[in-house]
Design a binder for these strands. Structure first.
Lengths: 246, 246
DNA sequence: TTTCGTGCTTGACATGGATCAAGCGCCCCA
DNA sequence: TGGGGCGCTTGATCCATGTCAAGCACGAAA
């Protein structure tokens, strides 16, 4: 049974900023580094930063010089048109990188907002570049991460360009489920951190349409929905919906 | 008046594969390289490759080991769903890179098809990576190019997620115009290399809708359309349409 | 020059999702 | 413990775009 929490100070290694100790490093770092390479990586992370729910990690227009790795928490990114319309471009969770959009012009082109209290590793980009000149594995890994982002965006373009409302929502839920699974969480049961409106913005739909699609999935026994608590009951069924068969 | 074309062989430097001689290098290469760095870049381009209109440069699923810089011509890329639906993810012109999607999984995730007879520089990716470890300016430039692609994709997501048919087409024409201008072509007059159906796929619309939007723009005096020949008559007007003001 | 095919335009109609509107439920805070 | 606000659900209606259909225009090939 649990002890009362100790009054002693937290052991140093638990708060130390070190990739080599981090249980996430298989998500954000390359495999197969030597011991000395790993130690140099520890210096990469200049700091940690906490971001409370509702706060921005960065905003469009701000100067770029760091990328961020999410240690814990949940974010959304969105882009804004001059006339006020906006589009959620992604939801990011533990182990994923934020800020790649800023490299191009050295200023951010989207907003990153925490959807729950979060903590990120702050990685000065120039440092990452110089280190990746020295560690080919790190360089290769970083290029793959950027490329993966491009591929992901193409997937969203496919969704927005060709799929109908229920197909989009099915694809969205399957994607979330798969990413939670990869992080060791239940693939079938999770809390949505975002509102119906934010889901709708991401999927190119109005929030009423998202709500109706959830209700329809519930009626068909594909998912159990209670506000933000989702249980996926029938993954093959959702896949069928996604490919609009039957 | 023009002379009959000479029977003499073409001077060697015109067909030599060398970035340092290439009048495109300000588009695909970094500025501010030293003379020796520039010479090393010349070795980057392993070969040129001609691709006839209607031929694929690469296809989804093929192993990836090179990226391509377009020397001349015009391409489209598209992604395919298992159920057969497809989405054009971009149109690429002279000076732009192709193949970045393949880095992530070391196999291509989209198809690249020539929309006119084209020529590309073949750049072995491992060579680019090793050279960019030695030339920081090249590394930085390559990272910016990848990031720019991500930002571009976010723009397309905004378009697909929030804009109406005529807004999308206006944005598309303005984007083409701006890219032609950057290459020294007329900003106001050009031939479309793609069909209405391909434009529609890119913009998430059916080809009939694209056609109607063109007709409407023509009626309103914004553009003059004759099949694939486009003259833009009123850029501010198109910008207004894009932001759906009046 | 004719013919064929592909791409384009335009019209008539259908429909999926947007819009407008009402009411509910949960959570936060007083 | 109660009140207010925000997010969600659901219904009724509207409209932008999709769908289906007909015919035209241009370019390639015979």
């Amino acid at each position: 049974m649990p002890l009362k929490s100790s009054a002693r100070p937290m052991p140093l290694q638990l708060i130390k900023t070190a990739c080599s100790n981090c249980n996430l490093h298989e998500l954000c770092l390359p495999l197969g580094l030597t011991h000395t390479e790993m130690q140099r990586l520890d210096d990469l992370v200049a700091a940690r930063r906490r971001v409370k729910r509702g706060e921005h990690l960065y905003r469009a227009g701000q100067a770029f010089d760091t990328i961020y790795a999410i240690r814990s928490g949940f974010f959304k990114t969105d882009v804004l048109m001059e006339d006020g319309r906006d589009q959620v471009t992604g939801f990011q969770m533990t182990g994923e990188l934020l800020g790649l959009d800023g490299i191009s012009t050295e200023s951010h082109t989207c907003n990153a907002l925490a959807l729950e209290d979060s903590e990120v590793c702050v990685i000065p980009f120039s440092h990452l570049e110089s280190l990746s000149r020295e560690i080919p594995n790190l360089q290769k890994h970083f290029h793959k991460v950027m490329s993966r982002e491009i591929v992901r965006d193409h997937g969203v373009m496919l969704l927005l360009g060709t799929m109908r409302a229920e197909e989009r929502l099915a694809a969205f839920l399957l994607n979330l489920s798969q990413r939670f699974t990869a992080r060791g969480f239940s693939h079938a049961e999770f809390y949505l951190r975002m509102t119906r409106e934010e889901i709708g913005s991401y999927l190119g739909l109005k929030f009423e349409t998202v709500s109706r699609a959830f209700s329809r999935f519930q009626d068909e026994g594909l998912v159990a929905v209670q506000q933000k608590h989702i249980r996926i009951l029938n993954i093959p069924g959702l896949k069928k919906v996604m490919h609009h068969q039957s």
